[in-house]
Design a protein around this nucleic acid. Structure first.
Length: 274
DNA sequence: CCTTCACCCTGCACGC
DNA sequence: TGCGTGCAGGGTGAAG
């Protein structure tokens, strides 16, 4: 369920159970995730977790020496359970048991996620990632320059990891609705004023979602954590046919880049499409 | 270089 | 109740 706010929420949910703790055991299921494992569990067992950080939608688990990269894909989630009461569920693929009595469990039905040792190869990949949306590096000057260079629909550009990381399908829809920009609008025709608002809107909406995610953190311990996803606060995503919160006309749906796009034909007119 | 497309996998909602 | 279909919040690599 991970867009960037969920990944960040997951990080905050597990960090206190892993940081400054020694990994006592690491169990992996025999099912392959997105990539074949590039390590054996003993490499990490006995090592102390120093910190867990996030880059884009990746979590980086810093152990004494090696680092571990965890991505939740489309259906991944992390939960914390007391090791003594741990019950493995279908689609659990990794159990990190730390001293202190708690385990972090990686669960991923579709197995689009990955757990990898942070090898040199991965460091290269990560180094190429675009700026974090909440960083000062992602500003209107930067975005305007990027938008000039492509004729693709603005929604596809916003979701392009080489432009800015962490803006997934839901938030791309929400941001464009908020600013009354048609999802198909050619990126290079987005005005300077619109680009400036896009930057502000992306930062605001992601920060707000992260903040809300925090309210569900206590559920992590019980193991029945609901992903901190706030459907009730989404204004356009998954609302096809339902009245636009602004004008009341039904929300439309179209496919762009193989992803569902929701928009209001009235509030987001395609005046300057292509 | 840029853009589009297929695809990795399972679960679920829906229509018949 | 069961079956088939389409769809899902991500990301990559190959092909055009």
């Amino acid at each position: 369920m991970p867009e960037l706010p969920e990944v960040e929420t997951s990080r905050q949910g597990i960090i206190n159970y892993a940081t400054d703790k020694t990994l006592k055991s690491l169990w992996l299921s025999n099912k392959a995730l997105r990539y074949p494992y590039n390590f054996e569990p003993p490499i990490f067992v006995g090592k102390r977790c120093i910190n867990i950080t996030r880059r884009a939608k990746y979590l980086i688990w810093h152990f004494d020496q090696e680092k571990l990269l965890v991505h939740l894909g489309m259906s991944g989630s992390l939960r914390v359970e007391e090791t003594s009461k741990l019950t493995k569920k279908k689609h659990d693929h990794a159990v990190f048991s730390f001293d202190g009595g708690y385990s972090v469990i990686y669960h991923d039905p579709r197995r689009f996620g990955s757990i990898m040792m942070y090898s040199g190869e991965w460091q290269k990949k990560m180094a190429k990632l675009a700026p974090e949306p909440l960083s000062s590096e992602f500003n209107s000057h930067y975005l305007i320059n990027k938008l000039k260079q492509t004729t693709r629909p603005i929604k596809i550009t916003l979701m392009d990891q080489s432009i800015v990381v962490g803006v997934g399908n839901i938030y791309a829809n929400e941001v464009l609705f908020q600013l009354k920009i048609h999802p198909e609008k050619q990126s290079s025709l987005v005005t300077t004023a619109e680009a400036e608002k896009l930057v502000v809107s992306i930062k605001t909406i992601l920060a707000a979602a992260i903040k809300q995610g925090g309210t569900t953190l206590r559920d992590f311990v019980s193991g029945n954590n609901k992903p901190g996803y706030f459907k009730q606060s989404l204004l356009v995503y998954d609302r096809e046919g339902l009245p636009c919160v602004s004008c009341g006309k039904p929300i439309s749906k179209m496919t762009l880049g193989q992803r569902s796009s929701f928009y209001c034909k009235v509030c987001q007119p395609c005046s300057v499409k292509s």
